[in-house]
Amino acid sequence: MTEHTMICVKHGQNGLGFIQEALTHIEDEHRLTIYLFDNMACEEDHEHRIVGMSLFQKLAEKHSADLLISDGRALTTAKRLAETAKEIGATHIIIGEYSEGLWRKFLGRSTADHLTDHLPSTQVKIIPPDHAHEDAEWTFEKGMDAYLYPNNDGTYLLDFHHDTDASHEGVFFKHRHTDFNNGRFAFYDENDICEANVKKGIVHELTDHFEHFA
């Protein structure tokens, strides 16, 4: 029987970091599915739903994983996870604790309890927040698709319009309470998810690998 692990993750600032952590708990020979919850439910947030999605897609491709996308309404999470796990034949499920509070509050039981009841032959592993980086302070606004353009002095100009001169494409997360384009630019570089500091719309170095975007 082929072992099949389903990583359940929410879209947003912590999603990529959660996947990276979850991968350390999986044997190499496991088939892999990443089940991504789009947790931006408001209509006014519709344009932000695809922001950064390419990073999830490329991370899935890197690890030869199937990528499934669903909405992220917390009270339907466990039911959808169980149904999907059955459909794809998952033998292992990895989840974070992001929806546990709501499930315990309204239903008196956890997501893990529900999954264990409905999938008795499937192993369920919970990664606690301190390992999944879900308790990290997030001081950025919503991500925006952005591009870098090289300058003659070796720096890069951040811009939100794309043309063929762009050297990198990714997602810009602006620091809150700033009038300038100060923040972090997350992008995919060869086999790594990387970041760079942005100060007043300029990137001086592309050396920061996956760190705060986790």
Rank of each mutant, 00 (worst) to 15 (best):
L67R: 03
D208G: 09
F18P: 04
G170I: 01
D145S: 11
I93Q: 03
A214P: 06
N182K: 04
L16Y: 01
F210S: 14
A60R: 04
T111N: 09
H133I: 02
A41E: 08
L67Q: 05
F106R: 07
I88W: 02
N39S: 12
T76L: 08
T84I: 05
R104N: 07
I26S: 06
T178R: 08
G72S: 00
L23N: 07
D38H: 05
G72A: 00
L16F: 00
F185E: 08
T116Q: 13
L157S: 10
H63M: 04
A82F: 04
D145T: 14
M53H: 04
P150A: 04
K142G: 09
I202T: 09
H48W: 09
E87I: 12
N181I: 03
F210R: 08
E141V: 10
A214W: 00
K200I: 06
I127E: 04
S121M: 09
F37H: 11
D163V: 07
T2Q: 12
K86H: 06
L36N: 02
A60S: 14
R109L: 09
S110G: 13
T122P: 00
G96I: 06
F106L: 10
R80D: 08
D66E: 12
T155S: 08
R184L: 15
H48R: 11
H118N: 11
D163I: 05
H133A: 11
D179L: 12
L102V: 11
C8Q: 01
W103Y: 09
V9W: 07
H131E: 15
D189N: 15
I93C: 05
T2A: 11
L206C: 07
L115S: 00
D28R: 13
I50V: 11
H209W: 13
M40W: 13
Q13F: 15
G170N: 02
L119M: 01
A41L: 15
D179H: 12
L23V: 04
I126P: 01
L115A: 02
S99V: 07
I26G: 03
I50S: 11
R109C: 10
I126D: 02
H168A: 05
E97S: 12
E97C: 11
E83C: 07
H4Q: 04
D145P: 04
I93G: 02
H131N: 12
G108P: 00
Y147K: 04
E97N: 12
A65F: 05
D28Y: 06
T76G: 13
F180C: 10
T111Q: 11
H131T: 06
C42G: 13
D163F: 07
E21R: 14
D208Y: 08
T207L: 09
F160D: 07
H161T: 13
G101T: 14
K105Q: 14
F185H: 05
R80M: 13
T91I: 00
L55A: 11
S99E: 15
D130P: 12
D189V: 00
V203G: 00
Q123P: 01
A186M: 02
D159T: 09
G183N: 05
W138M: 10
L206E: 03
R31I: 08
A78Y: 02
N197M: 11
G17P: 07
V203S: 02
A82I: 10
N14M: 08
F180N: 14
K174I: 01
G108N: 03
R176M: 13
T111V: 15
R80N: 13
L81M: 15
L107M: 10
Y35T: 01
E211H: 15
G183Y: 06
